[in-house]
Design a protein around this nucleic acid. Sequence first.
RNA 1: GCGGCCGUGGCGAAGUGGUUAACGCACCGGAUUGUGGCUCCGGCACACGUGGGUUCGAUCCCCACCGGUCGCCCCA
Length: 429
Amino acid sequence: MSYKAPRGTTDILPEDAKKWQWVEETIKQVCNKFHYEEIRTPVFEHTEVFQRGVGNTTDIVQKEMYTFEDRGGRSITLRPEGTAPVVRSFVEHKLHGLANQPTKLYYFAEMFRYERPQKGRMRQLNQFGVEVLGSADPAVDAEVIDLAMTCYQEMGLTSLKLVINSLGDKESRENHRQALIAHFTPHKHELCSDCQTRLQNNPLRVLDCKQDRDHPAMQTAPSILDYLNEESEAYFEQVKDYLDNIGIPYEIDKNLVRGLDYYNHTAFEIMSEAEGFGAITTLAGGGRYNGLVEELGGPNTPGIGFAMGLERLLMALEAENQVIPVDRSLEAYVVAVDEQAQKEAVMLVSKLRKHGVQADKDYLGRKMKGQFKAADRYAAKYVLIIGENELEEQTITVKEMSTGEQATVAKDQIIDVMKEKCVGGREHE
RNA sequence: GCGGCCGUGGCGAAGUGGUUAACGCACCGGAUUGUGGCUCCGGCACACGUGGGUUCGAUCCCCACCGGUCGCCCCA
């Protein structure tokens, strides 16, 4: 074996691709019900979109981006997340000027992050995400969370936990930031090296350090929730009220800060609590980002969104033993006995397909028995047999595989008969 | 970036410092000269991750690298 897919990437083979199709279909239906529209942005962007959008102090920008120079000397980055590109597109095309506001968007996109792969973490990963731009109504925060939870529920997941927090507005964050610096600075030399630099660049992120989790200063650290100003406090209360009203249970985690710089006010994560899920339990994460549109050159526009990892979603379905409905059957398999019959078979499958019947035949010169074995493996519902007798009498023998029953059909009626059995049957489902 | 475990045919999986490296599944064919799922028989298979080293000899021992996997950091 000479070539392999690069580290952290994987091929989705036909059997799994069917599961992906089902997941995407299910989610799209939810989006449609919530009245969100799809947006597609390029796989790569100017590096600066992420530096400015995601934030230079974040892990994503500092060590995870696939950045390269193109032949024109531009710095290009494979998108590591979806929000910054969508906002860039929103600004570039002045979607804020459209009549229908807020702008409610969703996307399916592959993301790229240079990390060491492990269970639930790939270098190329697939996310479904949602962004709502142009409304600062806390009801939108609840709607977006509702949408995410609905997707999971539609697919049958139950072992989920929704965790929310508020990061407050700019003023609240700044006050909290000062308090954090004042609180941790006396203990600076006791913290891990990462936290020592975090304390300077982004003290908020000291809070979710796993290494220093048990440090006494961590337990007594000032909580953002104690530094929310009146407005931020009220906003958070309203979000919680809306969640209560639409019946979505949640937990508050005052240490939930999220890794991206653009968040403010509502932050949330949805985690799997299924047994044997793996060490990484976050299925989806998101939050409000009221300053991001402006940061990327647009008008002052509030926004909120989330992204869910689709690989992790599939993992969660497996961990909860959710069976994904996948139809592997084939409607019609044409068996032909000899060379002349094979010519007839080629014409027959073509005609069947044009009339809406799913059809296939042998292409490996297998004997009759082998062709039947193949039909069986494909879970064919019907086998259409073209043998010497049939050729002579201008008929086709139709065998129903589940019962073994056979019937002889005149050649010029076979299409009608099969349409009735297959196409008609589908419409009645 | 750091650490644990792992690397034999398409898949699964034995095995040994020394002749042709088991076996199972899958696949193809035959028993059944036009009919599947069972059984029996036969066949097929580009396999010891790569490169060094130890050795008379290495799939096996040592080292490095690559890859996989799980975990740490962080995140979807």
